[in-house]
Design a binder for these strands. Structure first.
Lengths: 357, 357
DNA sequence: CGTATTTTCGTGCACGCACACGGAAATATT
DNA sequence: AATATTTCCGTGTGCGTGCACGAAAATACG
């Protein structure tokens, strides 16, 4: 039976061993004031040798330092409910770390309006922020803003969609290629080797769609690697503008005479639109796979119109993004550049235990 | 753009408003020493009205209180590797909360030896522990020990297998019935409506097997609720004693002439034994579903001998158990009695992002 | 009423760290 | 050599809370 005593090394212990005062050790630790090279080296050696770690409770209490973090995200709407969840995850993480002086400023923009993104991101640069959590919905504007932040040494964590050229501190999101492959494996079990499968992309005129395209790519990759018989994979792009849900396009693709649709893979969280359509038209024997536990998607999963949902874990994305900034900013620890979240497969049977995602 | 200022109410603020010293407020807060009823009521009113919350950093720093938590778990072995993971999760949680004075004592026992459980649990009662995390492997002994702990007001968190009659603070684990139903849904997609499906239980002479039986129950429940054609479900119990892996029983059940096994559901983490057998005998077209990301299970998932693994998330069970005790013991917060973990479905394609479970 | 005992409460100091201030020592300038 | 300036470092106090000690006030007893 092992005991776990924690003999904490304190600043005064190091001071004693180095024959200096605690104030000098503090100056060495924080590169503050002036310390002679000889004294500095002696203190640093002891710090390393004893593996000194500060008591973060005492440090936070004494410093009363504040870390102001900006959240630059789309606001969730009834049409795009997905974005309600990362926000909730960020707020949840804030509750855990606010004791350490972290505060959050919220800069929300309209998912469909590039100018609102520009306005809010400009405002961040006018304020005195120490870190930013950003959703890169508009790619080139986000890259521009990221560059501005880098010039000011403001660390940025990207959420949900990565930017390849960005020098952010971290990206928190899902491996989109792999999630497409997961969807394909599930589809293959459910729909067999014949007929055709629709890959439906709800896309926009503009903005970052890498993750959507990568999901399709992964889906096709899985089938491409199969040794025997595969169904026909057919892409269907539905341009997503405010107000339209693509009903006529769905009718043509699914209900036209001669179509043999066995399954549908929707590459984002708007799968509820397809589910609505299938339900209205009694097309219940089609395997339907999509993303995320939005309320309406959950409703259709429960009544078996949707067979599987893949969760991007949006709440956990939010939670993890703020915790990553905390580790980087406050604890000064190394954080991983790409933080991929698990690719959760949700069925009617395990839905209840995922509901808070 | 909303600001998030936190004007913290301190003890000295309350003291000023009540016309007493901070020491008196402290005495009221902690029911310490003696305070006149009149003064106590005045202070309590102000505390409630201002919704005072202590600064947990300052509280932990000043109190230097230690919370000693006992971990009463089986040790992980090559034969039962599952138990390596909850331990890792507990250690991970400990790192996050040790600043608040939490320390961990490890009391490990042999999964197959009731006496070792009795020895270790007795030792806990002899030591001065403030909380216990326990795996209820031997049901009645665990109930007994739980009763002892209750007499001493030592809170206990159960992990992995619940005890129905136990008055523990919390249970952290998976909803076994639902996980069996998830397995059945996956099996149904993969193996169709004819032939037979084996439900293999690796069981022991003694000990808590509720969760294993519940998984089978859930599996059967799913098929029972189907409206049309179901395969034959056949139970196969393999008694698990140290050293044997049930190879002969598997041979009879799977390879005998006349058997038409389309799928196998193994109700715990020993699915690698079945996978080994299938691989050795080139029986690769059987759908195989089991539990947990042990190294050997992962190997068979990668080479497609195993089709799906359901994760009990053992590491997260450990993590969550210690965090639950922390919330209860240190923060004095209410915690939920049954904390069910998500039922993760793992395929070859999403395995990499679950590897740390 | 005087003395003894109990109740009540203010005060001081501890926790480990952050950091400002100013005195002492070292160095530069005249 | 005397004076001015810079470098270096020790000391003191703050952060918010926990808690021990003992003085003052209230109460009990003879």
């Amino acid at each position: 039976m092992k005991r776990d005593p924690i003999p904490r090394i304190r600043i005064v212990d190091i001071a004693g061993l180095a024959g200096v005062s605690a104030g000098t050790v503090d100056r060495v630790l924080h590169n503050r004031g002036e310390v002679s090279p000889k004294t500095r080296e002696k203190v640093m050696d002891i710090i390393k040798e004893l593996n000194y770690e500060p008591d973060i409770l005492a440090s936070a209490l004494a410093a009363k330092k504040t870390f102001r973090i900006a959240a630059l995200l789309p606001y969730g709407t009834d049409q795009i409910p997905f974005w309600k969840y990362p926000v909730a995850g960020i707020e949840e993480g804030l509750l855990e770390i606010m004791h350490f002086g972290v505060s959050l400023e919220r800069y929300y923009f309209d998912f469909f309006d590039r100018d609102s993104f520009l306005r809010q991101s400009s405002e961040i640069l006018n304020d005195d922020m120490q870190g930013v959590i950003m959703a890169s919905v508009f790619t080139s504007e986000a890259e521009d803003f990221l560059e501005r932040c880098n010039e000011r040494n403001i660390p940025v964590v990207l959420i949900n969609a990565n930017i390849c050229s960005g020098s952010c501190v971290a990206f928190v999101g899902q491996d989109s290629l792999q999630s497409g492959m997961v969807a394909a494996r599930l589809m293959k079990y459910g729909s067999g080797s014949d007929g055709e499968i629709l890959i439906i992309n709800f896309i926009r005129d503009e903005g970052n769609q890498d993750h959507i395209l990568k999901r399709e790519e992964g889906f096709r990759k899985y089938y491409g690697e199969l040794k025997t018989g595969t169904p026909v994979l057919r892409q269907l792009n539905i341009v997503e503008t405010a107000g339209l849900d693509g009903r006529e396009i769905l009718r043509d693709a699914i209900l036209s005479p001669g179509t043999r649709v066995k399954g549908i893979f929707v590459t984002n969280s708007r799968v509820f639109r397809v589910a609505r359509f299938l339900e209205e038209n009694n097309a219940g024997d089609i395997i339907l796979i999509g993303y995320d536990l939005l309320d309406e998607n959950k409703h259709f999963l429960k009544n078996s119109t949707i067979d599987f949902l893949i969760s991007q874990k949006p709440r956990e994305q939010g939670y993890k993004s703020i915790m990553t900034l905390y580790h980087h900013l406050v604890l000064k620890k190394n954080v991983e550049r790409n933080q991929y979240l698990p690719i959760d497969i949700i069925t009617k049977e395990n839905l209840e235990h995922y509901s808070s995602e």
